[in-house]
């Protein structure tokens, strides 16, 4: 056996364990649910589930609702996190110290408890409503809990800390000297931001988009506890179809569709990574 073949075999042997784990816990379930999703009630293969998914009024509104919540959440999380991270990177002082100390707290609070807290705070006759009534005589508040707004607020709570941390580390990897040299040649703040800081942290921004997108689209706890009854987010809908309607095949179709949405995001992410690699090594 030549040395090359031996090394090749060693490489394969090193890859096989992780591949097997991936195969058993990711690939097989996906294939099974894909097959399942193509079965009708009598176990025959057909497109009936997907037909239902895309033609049923309620299901369609669920999909649109999920995408709406996801996109709005992603945009808001990124804007707030990036602003926080930039603020912490380029400022010093009491405010920065306090943000630094507190912004991670949500990570340490279990999601069920945080959601319950949000209900207490924002619900009908919750603290906020009471405070507004007492202090400003505001009598009516828009519905937040059991509404899209509630889910989005919860998503902000869950996603901002980690995203801020991610972007913060990317920003601290941009050396001061890079910014100083830009100032030195005469660039103002906006130009430095759009020409240097943003491009130099763009890759991490993309990672953050992917993380938040996947996290929100597949979220369950918050939408289940504070989402409206209809339309629902896909995770909640899936649970209902599976648990209440006992329609395993339909649930599999929803699951597979959610997976497709995520893999579209993943494809976009990988494409960008490859493009970046190429431009660097070209």
């Amino acid at each position: 056996m030549s040395k090359q073949v031996k090394m090749g075999m060693l490489g394969l042997a090193l890859v096989i364990p992780s591949f097997l784990v991936l195969f058993v816990i990711v690939v097989i379930p996906i294939v099974i649910s894909l097959l399942e999703s193509f079965k009708d009630k009598n176990g025959r293969y057909s497109f009936v589930n997907y037909e239902h998914l895309f033609t049923d009024k309620l299901m369609r509104s669920n999909i649109i609702f999920t995408l709406e919540v996801t996109i709005v959440s992603v945009v808001l999380v990124l804007i707030i996190s990036y602003a926080l991270a930039v603020y912490m990177r380029f400022n010093n002082g009491v405010a920065v110290r306090w943000i630094r100390r507190t912004y991670m707290i949500p990570i340490f609070i279990p999601s069920v408890i945080a959601t319950y807290g949000l209900i207490q705070l924002l619900g009908n006759h919750g603290w906020l409503a009471r405070i507004l009534l007492q202090a400003f005589s505001v009598e009516s508040m828009p519905r937040i809990i059991f509404d899209k707004k509630g889910i989005i607020i919860a998503q902000l709570w869950f996603n901002i800390p980690f995203t801020t941390m991610l972007l913060g580390s990317a920003l601290s990897a941009v050396p001061n000297s890079v910014i100083e040299s830009a100032k030195d040649v005469g660039a103002g703040f906006l130009r430095i931001f759009f020409k240097l800081i943003l491009p130099l942290t763009f890759k991490t921004l993309l990672v953050a988009v992917t993380f938040v997108f996947m996290g929100v689209i597949g979220s369950f706890t918050a939408p289940f506890l504070i989402g409206p009854n209809a339309p629902q987010m896909l995770g909640v809908s899936m649970e209902q179809v599976f648990g209440v309607f006992q329609d395993k095949q339909m649930a599999a179709a929803i699951a597979f569709f959610t997976f497709l949405l995520c893999s579209f995001m993943g494809y976009f992410y990988i494409q960008n990574m490859i493009k970046e690699e190429r431009s660097r090594s070209a």
Partner: peptide
Amino acid sequence: SMVFQSYNLW
């Protein structure tokens, strides 16, 4: 205009 110790090209 300044030339920095660590090249500082973008």
